[in-house]
């Protein structure tokens, strides 16, 4: 019998990075943030408050293992060991299951702090479009949360919903955004309240003869619409920034910016590491506090 290999269109690239020009050995404070999310896990290592290394990979079925794997990958080729890190903060859904974390902090606080670092102190509204939830966060100039709202009851408006569509239409997840923009006329959005309904609606549209691009446009538009209603509840104040995996989807972002009539800030950093980055920044403050107490 011949085995049929199914291509996983939803699978996004996993990667790690470290700054080869930085020497961490003489550093005063080395901290890390470990963000174990529902879909992806990230580790960010900071040396004296500066970004040194990070990794981004898919979360497995076991949170402690996912945290360990992401940490090992971030440390790869750096010469640094886990014991060299002075303070570690765990965040995300699996934050209480990070075996080597000194403290757990919610992803809401970490995204605000990480967003403040990535986009600068002028950022006041952060939208984190994660794997299985969506968070709208208002923060002050120090990255402290002033208002937040999270919707994690259903997959509509989340990365997982986008993965379902990539698989349904056999389109690589990384191409979804650009393809959805390649339509002559913007179609009506599909159902924005439920991914299962949206998927069955999309199947019907394909049978009616809609192109893949048009269906993607309808879904990206639904996703943007869904998220706008979330943002409306807390109010959007500029500057506005988007974090999480969906921030890499131009189709959703362009439509979201169009609905809000606001352009989002861009960052040189990967939008998926915002939570772990915030965790590493919290870890630095906590390590210094701990050191002062001990002195």
């Amino acid at each position: 019998m011949t085995e049929v290999k199914v291509k996983e269109f939803w699978r996004w690239k996993e990667y790690n990075w470290h700054d080869e020009n930085k020497d961490w050995k003489g550093a005063e404070t080395i901290t890390a943030g470990v963000d174990v999310g529902s879909v992806s896990s990230q580790v960010v290592i900071m040396v004296d408050g500066e970004l040194y290394a990070y990794s981004n990979m898919r979360t497995g079925s076991d949170s402690p293992d996912s945290a360990r794997n992401a940490m090992n990958w971030a440390l790869e080729d750096t010469g640094m060991a886990l014991d060299d890190i002075h303070y570690i903060v765990g965040t995300g859904y699996g934050r209480v299951n990070v075996p080597f974390a000194n403290r757990a902090i919610t992803e809401i606080a970490c995204h605000a702090r990480g967003g403040n670092y990535m986009y600068g102190p002028s950022v006041r509204t952060i939208l984190d479009m994660g794997g299985q939830d969506c968070k709208a966060i208002r923060c002050d100039e120090r990255g402290k949360v002033t208002n937040f709202l999270m919707n994690d009851k259903c997959a509509a408006g989340t990365g997982r919903g986008m993965e379902v569509f990539a698989d349904l239409l056999a389109v690589s997840i990384e191409d979804v955004g650009d393809l959805s923009l390649d339509v002559e006329e913007e179609p009506e959005p599909v159902s924005s309240t439920c991914v299962v309904f949206a998927k069955s609606e999309a199947t019907s549209l394909l049978r009616e003869g809609w192109s893949k691009k048009k269906v993607l446009a309808a879904y990206c538009s639904a996703m943007a619409h869904r998220v706008v209603s979330l943002l409306d509840r807390i109010g959007v104040e500029e500057d506005f920034a988007i974090t999480g995996g969906i921030a890499k989807n131009s189709g959703v972002i362009k439509r979201l910016e169009g609905e809000l009539k606001i352009n989002s800030l861009k960052s040189k950093h990967d939008t998926q590491i915002a939570g772990a980055l915030g965790g590493a920044l919290f870890a630095k403050s906590l390590a210094e506090k701990q050191r002062k107490k001990g002195a």
Binding site: V145, T146, N147, L149, C154, R233
Partner: peptide, 16 residues
């Protein structure tokens, strides 16, 4: 900080 606990679904918005 204003902390909103709850959810929104097809039937409405429910936040404390």
């Amino acid at each position: 900080m204003k902390a909103n606990y709850g959810y929104m679904d097809g039937s409405g918005e429910y936040f404390i």
